[in-house]
């Protein structure tokens, strides 16, 4: 059964841009379900995701995705990148962007196959953006743009979806749309691994956590891995207060 295969397994993964490693010796097995990657700024969270996807070269270690080598999984992992990197003036509508999810499945030329077009429209509708299908992407608000890219990740129809800061700087409507989609994906037995920065909502949105600060600080189910001690360890004592209740208050140096 699919659900028993860990969505991501890394062994001794090390990534370095310059002389100093950004991610060091990460040996980690994600359980199926919804997983948050949490850690301070510069902890290597995005780097880890990008290395898992093979977008950046790794210095050492190995990655397995759903039990297979990453190369074999190319195109079968959904991906929601951090907002910003694209050219918002690009001549493309919201529907064009979502339809890009099918670039590998569909043939490369000619009109978009009907099935792909409908999948794209359905994904747009699911994030509440059906009315904006023909709008040029630069003319959408930041939250709407984020939802379009979420729809693109959904349209990939992948067993595993990676998200880099999906909740960063989004409006309330977008946040609740993302949460609804996380729950739907979880209920369908799919896995999501997301970089998350808001300690207050980690428990509500996710099942498991990976606390990262260049190395693995703690990993596993919320109850055991996401405690005052592990969070303090991950944030290097920069924690001001981590109450017994549901809230966390945190100050990061810098």
């Amino acid at each position: 059964m699919r659900a028993s295969v860990p969505p991501i397994e890394t062994t001794g993964l090390t990534v370095a841009y310059g002389p100093n490693p950004a991610v060091e010796d990460v040996t980690w097995t994600a359980a199926p379900g919804l997983t948050a990657i949490v850690g301070p700024n510069g902890a290597g969270k995005s780097t880890l995701l990008r290395a898992i996807l093979g977008l950046i070269p790794v210095r050492g270690g190995s990655v397995r995705i759903l039990g297979e080598a990453p190369a074999a999984m190319r195109g079968r992992v959904g991906w929601l990148p951090q907002r910003a990197a694209v050219d918002w003036d690009f001549p493309a509508s919201a529907l064009d962007v979502v339809a890009m999810a099918g670039t590998r499945r569909a043939r490369w030329f000619g009109p978009l196959p009907r099935a792909e077009r409908e999948a794209a429209r359905a994904a747009l509708a699911e994030v509440g953006m059906a009315d904006y299908a023909d709008r040029q992407i630069g003319r959408l608000s930041g939250g709407q743009q984020q939802r379009v890219f979420l729809a693109r990740a959904l349209a990939q129809d992948a067993q595993l979806v990676l998200m880099d800061e999906p909740f960063a700087a989004v409006d309330a409507a977008t946040e609740s749309a993302i949460v609804a989609i996380l729950r739907r994906l979880g209920a369908e037995g799919r896995s999501v691994v997301a970089v998350h920065h808001d300690l207050a909502t980690v428990r509500d949105y996710f099942d498991q956590v990976l606390l990262l600060n260049r190395r693995v600080v703690a990993a596993g189910p919320m109850d055991t891995a996401f405690t005052a001690e592990t969070v303090a360890a991950a944030y290097g004592g920069k924690l001001l207060r981590f109450g017994a209740g549901e809230t966390a208050v945190l100050a990061e140096a810098g």
Partner: peptide, 23 residues
């Protein structure tokens, strides 16, 4: 350009995503 139309479009827009898709 005609044969690679859709991959080229994605390459221009978001090369990182094109790589994730396995293009």
């Amino acid at each position: 350009v005609a044969v690679c139309w859709r991959p080229l479009k994605l390459l221009c827009f978001d090369a990182g995503y094109a790589a994730v898709l396995g293009l």
